[in-house]
Structure formats: structure tokens, C-alpha cells
Computed example of a mutant assay.
Amino acid sequence: MTAALKRAKPYIEQRDGGYWIEETRISLDSVVYAFLNGESPESIAQNFPLLSLEQVYGAITFYLANRELIDAYLEEGEKEFEKLQQSLREKNPPLYQKLKAAQIQKHSKA
């Protein structure tokens, strides 16, 4: 007797100019950066309790199958973030310094 195979699920969807875990508000970026930082799929699933382990593996598989495309997408996002940081530095130096100090403090505790 053969068990029925499940049809492959689309774990990732494109919306609002980004990639998201299907039917969630969790970005693919979040899972990919955690994966690239050496976190295991199990650890990622623990850090994102709304995601099942299956969804995490699905997101990682999507990334690995589309690595060149997603790496370019992530790089573009980093460039956009740099532009926003530069704009904040120029428009509101005191606020930028407070945010930078909070970031340094957060990383020193980790």
C-alpha cells in the first residue's frame, strides 16, 4: 500500500515588494539572515513561534534554490537601509546618535 504524497507547498510569497513566509507577516529576510548567521532550523523556529519547523525548512530551501536572486534582493535592501541611515544622520544627528548608542548597548549585552 502506498501513502499518498502531499503536493509541494509554496512556502514563500511575494508581496509589497518583498518576500514573505506564506500567509504570515514574517519576512524571508529574517529567516535567511538567521540561517546565514549559523542558526539551526530548530533554533529559528523557536525564535519565530508563529512558524512551524516545516515553514522554516521551506524558507531555507527556497533561499538555497534561488540563492543568486535572494542574495541580490538582500543586498539591495542593505543599500536602501544605508541610504536611510545616511539620511537620518544628516537630518537629525542627535536622534541618530541615540539610536546608535542603543544599538551598541544592545550588542554589548548579547
Rank of each mutant, 00 (worst) to 15 (best):
residue 36 L to W: 06
residue 93 P to C: 07
residue 32 V to H: 11
residue 97 Q to W: 05
residue 107 H to E: 06
residue 50 L to E: 09
residue 107 H to D: 02
residue 66 N to P: 05
residue 6 K to G: 05
residue 66 N to F: 07
residue 63 Y to D: 15
residue 4 A to C: 06
residue 36 L to F: 08
residue 9 K to S: 01
residue 41 P to L: 08
residue 53 L to Y: 12
residue 102 A to P: 05
residue 2 T to Q: 10
residue 19 Y to V: 02
residue 23 E to I: 04
residue 64 L to C: 12
residue 87 S to P: 03
residue 63 Y to R: 15
residue 12 I to K: 12
residue 35 F to H: 14
residue 72 A to P: 07
residue 61 T to E: 14
residue 99 L to C: 02
residue 57 Y to P: 09
residue 77 G to S: 04
residue 36 L to Q: 15
residue 19 Y to E: 10
residue 48 F to A: 09
residue 90 E to V: 01
residue 55 Q to G: 00
residue 16 D to Y: 13
residue 39 E to T: 08
residue 44 I to Q: 03
residue 31 V to W: 01
residue 27 S to Y: 03
residue 2 T to H: 05
residue 71 D to A: 10
residue 72 A to Y: 07
residue 73 Y to A: 05
residue 62 F to G: 07
residue 71 D to L: 14
residue 21 I to G: 06
residue 47 N to G: 05
residue 45 A to L: 12
residue 12 I to W: 09
residue 20 W to C: 13
residue 72 A to V: 09
residue 44 I to V: 10
residue 64 L to V: 10
residue 2 T to A: 15
residue 103 Q to P: 00
residue 34 A to F: 11
residue 59 A to V: 14
residue 108 S to H: 02
residue 23 E to V: 03
residue 96 Y to N: 00
residue 54 E to H: 10
residue 88 L to I: 06
residue 46 Q to N: 13
residue 89 R to V: 00
residue 8 A to V: 09
residue 68 E to R: 13
residue 66 N to A: 02
residue 107 H to N: 08
residue 108 S to K: 08
residue 3 A to V: 12
residue 56 V to G: 04
residue 39 E to G: 04
residue 102 A to D: 14
residue 61 T to K: 13
residue 21 I to M: 05
residue 94 P to D: 09
residue 33 Y to N: 14
residue 90 E to M: 02
residue 42 E to L: 12
residue 2 T to D: 01
residue 11 Y to R: 15
residue 17 G to K: 05
residue 90 E to I: 00
residue 26 I to F: 06
residue 45 A to Y: 10
residue 65 A to H: 12
residue 68 E to A: 14
residue 101 A to Q: 10
residue 105 Q to L: 03
residue 55 Q to L: 01
residue 11 Y to L: 04
residue 21 I to W: 06
residue 74 L to I: 12
residue 74 L to S: 07
residue 71 D to W: 15
residue 79 K to P: 00
residue 95 L to G: 09
residue 60 I to L: 10
residue 41 P to N: 07
residue 84 L to I: 01
residue 96 Y to F: 08
residue 60 I to R: 00
residue 62 F to M: 13
residue 39 E to L: 09
residue 103 Q to E: 06
